[in-house]
Design a binder for these strands. Structure first.
Lengths: 348, 348
DNA sequence: GGTCAATTTGGTAGCGCTACCATTTTTTTG
DNA sequence: CAAAAAAATGGTAGCGCTACCAAATTGACC
């Protein structure tokens, strides 16, 4: 406990490290702390002279602002939690990539959260991350626990839901019409003349967006007067392995299949690679369609026909929507249909 | 501005939302705020009776702690910044995945940062994220700007460097001996009897760990008295496309090549798929080896021989080291060699 | 019952920053 | 050139929580 000459106990930072504070900078530059704050946050409101003095002091002392203190005082941090179901699914990674690059360029940091497709965990995570007073939130899908929705709506800051579209969104959303996308591939397969068409998925019990695509697929086949309930799936999450497994299962149970519509490109790729191994000719013996547009698809033999969804761009767009709201710019729309595109290659 | 009957101005939360605070909970439960804090953070220090009363009040009011305020008061938040060079490289994603799952299970949040392989951006990012008073930091590689190293060392909290090993690490590190791993594959190719062996990479100007692997490869070939300077590379980052491109370039410039050692599995996969297309037999006409152990490798035809590095596990281990330090447990070692394994399959 | 230690609870004082308003200085204008 | 408006600077008071220590309560033991 240090005491100065007058015997008065000096202000000691009673916990934590003794980093340089805004006080120190202010003293060094001969201005008030608030002025230093302004130089850092709203430099246009400070005269050039003082601004330079302060900048000097900042440099000299190696001052790094305590964003926690700033966040507490101004009731907000430049942090954006991004909550996705899983980090082992490439799709989400690519979306996160787009989000992260866009937000980081604007001076925001991404706080990562994953829920393992569990809405309760999502709600709990939401509560937790809101404790960091973030500037906004990005989460996946439109289905959430009632409590989470209520809290987010009451929260009053920008919320973007990704991957999906619908009028029940909390605030803003960016995504695709899953049912339509499923119908799109089904249509393509019908047009190509295939009639015995199956849908193959993995972990669909948890992934309701895949189920929506299946619904679109089903409706389309039904309207065409074709057997529409051929569905094969496995419990495990999507992977090349899972793709191979459902592929083999379908092949065994239903040897007369003419086309397979996979819930995503990972599964489709696993199937194509196994088909190559077994000497099954694609699309000669069997047609294969995917969903996503992974770059792997165009390198396979045969190249994979798929419904391409701009995942990276979806992330960028989600971040842009959020930023627009944060910067007071009103965006054109709160609902952005990022679209999809049928990419016809060799496998159908 | 609200005034009560006595005309005294009520305390209004002069900014931000009027969320439930620890004060409100304390009043509801009839205890002091500090007691509520203890119930939440160190419940074992509070009697069962009060604990239950407080828990009730928390539930009733829907209290969510303000982690920013807590962070300021206790000079630390349960946030761990994870800084990687790029989010478009699968390797880092898988490591992040391991980190994230482990840290989230322990109640920490991952703050994501990417540097695009730019050490200056890394240093700037470091300054910025340290402003959030994180509990620790995870960053990539052992090469950093002097200023960043100095700051992190002075910081005094756990720092883990991943992907690489070496005695110059700031605090702790988890990774592999890149040079050794490169030598391992080179050795394998020599043992298989190949003599005209090339190394093929992408974006190696920025990725010095790939250069280290090449060095290991080079030394090994040199010792064996074999031409060791066959190096092909392209500017663009790794991808299946890049793999195909360097593959074709090498094939053209050096048609008598017997084996190709790729800097990673993405490149090798691109090459194998192109070889299939062109009818080049592997390993008959040409052997191909990779690095990483991506799951894709075992689905290709031929299955890819590679040096497998446990990426997810590296992330888990990095997180564990950090947590051990944070929880006061001293870990066995500050340097963890996560190892690699030669996975011999069909392509060599 | 009284003494001492151990346990449980509370009061006080910040953490480092910025919102808000008051004050000072500069610029504009009749 | 004075008066009004605008711009630049500073003082004060928290933001909501927890570290630190003091006080009150309980239990242990002779």
């Amino acid at each position: 406990m240090t005491t100065n000459k007058a015997g008065i106990r000096e202000r000691r930072r009673h916990r934590g490290d003794n980093r340089v504070t805004i006080q120190d900078v202010a003293k060094q530059a001969g201005v008030a702390p608030i002025t230093v704050s302004r130089v850092l946050n709203t430099p246009e409101k400070v005269s050039v002279k003082l601004r330079e003095r302060v900048d000097h002091a900042v440099q000299a002392l190696g001052y790094v602002p305590n964003l926690i203190a700033g966040g507490l005082a101004s009731a907000g941090t430049r942090v954006i939690p991004v909550v996705v179901p899983s980090l082992s699914i490439l799709t989400f990674i690519e979306v996160i990539h787009g989000i992260q690059e866009t937000l980081e360029a604007a001076g925001y940091q991404v706080l990562l959260g994953s829920t393992d497709f569990d809405l309760d965990r999502e709600a709990a995570l939401m509560d937790s991350v809101l404790g960091y007073s973030p500037s906004g939130v990005i989460l996946t899908g439109l289905q959430h626990r009632e409590s989470a929705v209520r809290r987010l709506k009451a929260w009053g800051r920008p919320v973007v839901e990704i991957m999906e579209l619908g009028d029940t969104c909390i605030d803003m959303c960016v995504g695709v019409q899953n049912a339509e996308a499923g119908a799109c591939m089904a249509n393509h397969l019908l047009e190509r003349g295939y009639r015995r068409i199956a849908f193959l998925g993995a972990g669909m019990a948890r992934d309701y967006r895949a189920r929506q695509r299946f619904e679109g697929h089903r409706e389309t086949l039904k309207s065409a007067g074709v057997e529409c309930d051929l569905l094969f799936q496995c419990e495990e999450p999507s992977s090349y392995d899972a793709g191979r497994n459902v592929f083999l299962e379908a092949l065994e149970k239903c040897p007369d299949l003419e086309a397979m519509h996979f819930a995503n490109d990972n599964l489709a790729a696993g199937a194509i690679m196994e088909a190559n191994r077994q000497g099954i000719r694609i699309p000669g013996d069997l047609a294969i369609g995917g969903y996503l547009g992974l770059s792997l698809g165009e390198h396979l033999s045969p190249r994979l026909t798929t419904v391409t969804v701009p995942r990276y761009e979806m992330g960028v767009e989600a971040a842009r929507l959020l930023l627009a709201r944060l910067e007071g710019r009103s965006s054109l729309s709160d609902q952005v249909d990022i679209g999809y595109e049928l990419t016809v290659r060799e496998s159908t």
